[in-house]
Design a protein around this nucleic acid. Structure first.
Lengths: 139, 139
DNA sequence: TATTGTTATACTCTATAACTATA
DNA sequence: TATAGTTATAGAGTATAACAATA
């Protein structure tokens, strides 16, 4: 394509981020699933019970936006919202059996989307890109 | 932070893209400039005259969105829109002297924002990340 | 028929402020 | 006074359809 804008690292990074999001979002759409929901379920499984605030921080999502997502996900029976006895302001989130089923379906979708997204790189390059990305984030 | 979501390359890539966009966008906001405008001016300088369609393709932006941006940029005297004598559907874009001045200011902003964005990486790592990003995009 | 620029529209993502109930 | 969850709202970014003029 010979696009001079791609010579700027920031522009190229924003572009790759858009491609990544469009790819994962499209893959989940095809399955009738939500990628945001998947990441929430994934997080609850890996870390166990979390408050809404904690989950929002991991997703880098505002608490107020998470509320709407959790309303849907709770209604769908994928996540439980239980009051925290030790702090009645908080609500403890946990994944349900149905949530675990959907998580597994989502993992397959992520795997396929990741393969598509990184199709131009071999295994070693994919790992390098991932590691450099994590370091750039500061994680 | 120990975020399990970052173990997924797609999630980490989307996150880094968000950081890149927020950093460059914030840096331009501070100067009272627009990063979208800067990229348009940059492109017109590197490639010379372009049609709106061609510029939109380089920016990965829909033609219809570009119209509004060009209205502002043309009013500000940074870009000229001239009819194309050989194809009266097209309008040929070119940068003005004022546009070149603003482009130079924007370049400084991009340089500072890039340094901030890649602060955790050394020069060699920055170059590696950039090259891998370009390959992943398929450029 | 197909394409360029244009208008209008809508949806997602993100950000912010303010309220309530608790601490 | 500070925090967790909530509600409401607005803005940026992105995507789509449809139209007029032109090829």
């Amino acid at each position: 394509m010979d696009n001079p804008l791609l010579g700027m690292p920031m522009f190229a990074t924003v572009r790759l981020g858009r491609i990544a999001r469009a790819t994962v979002s499209g893959a989940f759409d095809q399955e009738g699933l939500s990628w945001r929901t998947h990441f929430a379920l994934y997080c609850l499984t890996e870390l166990g019970e979390l408050s809404q605030r904690e989950l929002a921080d991991h997703l880098t999502m505002d608490r107020s936006d998470l509320v709407k997502m959790l309303d849907e996900v709770e209604t769908a029976g994928l996540v439980r919202r239980a009051p925290d006895p030790s702090d009645r302001r908080r609500r403890i989130l946990s994944i349900t059996a149905a949530g675990k089923d959907q998580l597994q379906r989502g993992k397959d979708v992520v795997d396929r989307a990741t393969d598509e997204f990184l199709a131009h790189l071999n295994g070693n390059e994919r790992e390098q890109l991932h590691q450099l990305t994590l370091r750039a984030i500061g994680a």
